[in-house]
Design a protein around this nucleic acid. Structure first.
Lengths: 280, 280
DNA sequence: GGCCGGTACCGACGGTATCAGGTACCGTCT
DNA sequence: AGACGGTACCTGATACCGTCGGTACCGGCC
């Protein structure tokens, strides 16, 4: 693996992630001899602080660039925003994904404390959930472009094998899961569900928020937050529990309670040969 | 949006005629793009069926290609899979996104009936939720690559303005929302939350499923389904309700499983510690 | 020699242009 | 009526462009 700039992304994945067309075949030719910092002398370590700062600054520039050019920024634009050129960026980040991950971490560092603070503002668990949801939505509204970059990053050129992408949602989900595990444990219950629950709740809020934005905010943010809190807190049981009367869901074969667009191309291949017998 | 503006875009005929008013505003759905539809004769309409078939076939080829090359297929590979070349594909789909949407619709046509069938297999609402979740997970496991293509499609090069991408998640979410609205209405309650709830629940399952796959399936699918059902049905209230003892989530004292960085500002110039490295 | 940074470039990929055919429909001329 | 040319679509293929992520190679600083 590369020598120095890596340190972050590729260290936990043993296998180098190759892409479909083998273009980056030169794996080990770079001097790996000193890869281990056992050999590090002052000549090298002297730069540590500078490197850290530079990375940080580049992350900051990325955020700015996202604000200026939208969530689809290019590396050139990011570099330009940082007052330098792509090469410099690539010296500090192995690839776009690496940068992306760093940005996510940075944003998470801002967001998570807010979430935590919001939750600490109350002692009633339900209020805590409500506050956290509200904080999330506030973050979205504060800078939609950054939000899109960070949660809908079309990063990670995935090829067939798992994608090691660490998006913001993952990070937040991990937090939620950890918190949930802790809570469950404290309660003496099996924390096995913590992972699923944590990521599930985060996904709940995320998807609903995305939908909300996509459909041009059909309701007030506070309303959305309230609805989501209801759902996250009480679950779907609330949909049908109050009125035990009618059977709640499509009993047998109701007209599909669908949005107005099922008829896209329903017709299975049953048709007379059109013009030419087959298609040439 | 593009949906149907097929091939008619840049075609200029000499000796042309009343190009009528340019109302390219994509009315409802089905084909209308033909601006001068007044002139539509059999020479044109005769191909309609063929066009429909061809689109369908290309969608099918895309699915196959995704299976063969992974979720990151290129247009060339798709075309090759269909036994033709890119140009032919672009004759029927305005761009990659158009194809993507069509694929999503196709998959949704397979998935939604399954979901509906699963839900109809029981009368107890909670079981219905459980079955739907299970069906979703089954779909994921049946063909992970297609799943990834369809829910994590890095399609739609969005630029600053809204992207009308219709991913599979959206479609399923719409269904869920519609169903929920119907249920709420039947119960005489305000269906305002339906949208948020429908998309929220779908997002819940999706995110949890993604996490599950990403972390290499740390539990049985049935277990995951059970956990998700618990969460979706009863919500988070179940996490803390049983034991009324300690306040449930004090993120303060115990080493929060958090990334160790409270400082958000750019460069805390102190610690020589290289970038924090949590666990990941 | 370590590191930094820049220019110029590669290669992949989405998408287009332009070629060279092929076939059913239409209006018209005979 | 039938023949005929034009029309309105199809099909395939090759070659190409623009963009963008990523790299080779160079010079300069310690």
């Amino acid at each position: 693996m590369k020598a120095e700039a890596v340190r972050r992304s590729s260290q936990d994945k043993p296998a180098d992630l190759v892409r479909a067309p083998g273009n980056v075949a030169h794996a080990g030719e770079r001097r790996e001899s000193k890869a281990d910092q056992t050999t590090r002398d002052r000549r090298d370590s002297r730069w540590d602080e500078h490197r850290r700062q530079r990375r940080e600054q580049l992350v900051q520039a990325t955020l700015t660039a996202v604000g200026r050019h939208g969530a689809g920024v290019g590396m050139d634009e990011i570099a330009a925003e940082a007052g330098t050129s792509k090469t410099a960026v690539y010296r500090h980040f192995t690839d776009r994904t690496d940068l992306y991950v760093a940005v996510c971490e940075r944003v998470a560092q801002q967001l998570l404390p807010k979430l935590r603070a919001a939750m600490e503002s109350s002692h009633h668990p339900r209020e805590m959930v409500a506050d956290a949801i509200n904080a999330y939505l506030a973050f979205l509204e504060a800078d939609p472009e950054v939000y899109r970059f960070v949660v809908h990053g079309q990063n990670g050129h995935f090829g067939r094998d798992a994608d090691p992408i660490t998006s913001l949602s993952d990070l937040v989900g991990d937090q939620a899961a950890a918190l949930m595990a802790l809570t469950l444990e404290q309660a003496g219950r099996d924390p096995g569900a913590a992972g699923a629950w944590g990521h599930g709740v985060v996904g709940l809020v995320r998807s609903a928020a995305d939908w909300w934005v996509r459909s041009e905010r059909p309701m007030l943010r506070t309303e959305l937050a309230a609805h989501l809190t209801d759902l996250a807190w009480a679950g779907l049981s609330g949909v049908v529990s109050p009125p035990p009367a009618t059977s709640p869901a499509p009993p047998t074969s109701p007209a599909p309670p669908i949005s107005p667009a099922p008829p896209i191309s329903p017709a299975p291949p049953t048709s007379p040969a059109p013009p030419s017998k087959e298609d040439k």
